[in-house]
């Protein structure tokens, strides 16, 4: 076990981890942050997406010990001050159904928007192409992202 410290949603956290512990399991089962989900455990589905140092990554493919000294944002961190415009647009459009892919999808789109405030439809699709959704057919999610990024 090694004590690691990292910033999680703006708060400095410390936790003891073994080298074989995966970031997703540490976030969910040791720290209790539950918005990152497990949907494949192989990096294919994107449900476990978190933002690491500003980039969307797969927390199922990262060893928890690697994030010592790094900065992580999960959906819980995004919603601290109420809904973001993207979350509001998704809500208004009934964009999600079962909602299981939503945390990962929203974080991927948020990352896209932070580096590219007015993405094309292709860029929007590309940014969430690693987040599998079985319910929605994606179009309502794409429409919500388009709506928010066309404004302003």
């Amino acid at each position: 076990m090694k004590k690691i410290s990292f910033t999680l949603n703006g708060e400095l956290r410390q936790v003891d981890v073994a080298p074989n512990e995966i970031l997703l399991e540490v976030l969910r089962y040791k720290i209790g942050v539950k918005s990152p989900k497990c949907g494949c455990d192989t990096g294919d589905c994107g449900a476990c997406t978190v933002i690491l140092n500003g980039k969307a990554v797969r927390s199922c493919l990262i060893f928890a010990i690697e994030i010592n000294g790094q900065e992580i944002v999960t959906l819980e961190g995004l919603s601290k001050d109420g809904l973001t415009p993207l979350q509001k647009a998704l809500l208004d459009r009934n964009a999600f159904q079962c909602g299981y892919c939503a945390p990962g999808m929203i974080l991927s789109a948020t990352c896209l928007m932070s580096g590219n405030p007015h993405p094309s439809e292709e860029e929007i699709k590309e940014s969430i192409a690693g987040n599998l959704c079985r319910c929605t057919g994606y179009q309502p999610v794409i429409d919500a992202i388009s709506e928010v990024t066309k404004k302003h």
């Binding site: 990096g43 990554v57 192409a129």
Partner: peptide, 9 residues
């Protein structure tokens, strides 16, 4: 290569 979430790593 894979998806953006993997390419970032």
């Amino acid at each position: 290569v894979a998806s953006s979430g993997v390419r970032n790593r």
